[in-house]
């Protein structure tokens, strides 16, 4: 059975090949290699990989690589994170949510829904905070208004990224 070489010795063998050891470390590892056949074999394996890898050459792309790149320069972005189809679906979702929220508010569903959150009820306050904390008023109607505003902002963003921007880019390219 082959003797297992400890990882730190394996690392030292690579440093030895790279000439990255001090004179003292070099003498020490050379002594070990002389007295351990498994270590000498491992050094040969690593040296062989080193020699082969040193002959590694660059790969070459197709001959018309540059022409293709130059031709495609106007096609950016090549892949939008949001496709038109997904954008339309997302936009529809945003609109439906906004309409439902607006209908609920106008129907007065959240008119009486208000409460206060008492931070002093949280156990942590007694343990770590000695001073009493204020109560936070919680108004359902206000929260829903904020959600509607955020939805509208998101809707405009999606409309711009997924529909308007690609549309005008296509028109500009068609005009060239």
């Amino acid at each position: 059975m082959m003797k297992k070489i400890p990882p730190h010795i394996d690392d030292q063998l690579l440093d030895y090949l790279d000439g990255a050891l001090s004179e003292q470390e070099k003498e020490k590892i050379e002594f070990m290699i002389r007295n351990d056949q498994a270590l000498a074999n491992r050094l040969e394996e690593l040296r062989s990989i080193d020699r082969s890898m040193q002959q590694l050459t660059l790969e070459h792309p197709s001959k018309n690589f540059t022409q293709v790149v130059m031709h495609k320069l106007d096609q950016y972005p090549l892949r939008s994170g949001l496709t038109t189809r997904n954008g339309i679906i997302l936009l529809a979702g945003v609109l439906v949510t906004t309409i439902i929220a607006t209908l609920l508010i106008s129907a007065g569903v959240f008119d009486g829904k208000s409460t206060t959150i008492d931070l002093n009820q949280i156990e942590l306050t007694g343990k770590y905070i000695s001073r009493p904390l204020p109560s936070i008023p919680f108004n359902g109607k206000m929260i829903l208004n904020v959600i509607i505003m955020l939805n509208l902002a998101l809707g405009f963003l999606v409309l711009d990224r997924a529909i308007l921007k690609p549309y005008f880019q296509r028109r500009m390219q068609a005009g060239h």
Binding site: L58, P61, T66
Partner: peptide, 12 residues
């Protein structure tokens, strides 16, 4: 195009 030519092999 000069930059592309110069770096295309390494990039590839």
């Amino acid at each position: 195009a000069h930059l592309v030519d110069r770096h295309k092999s390494f990039a590839y």
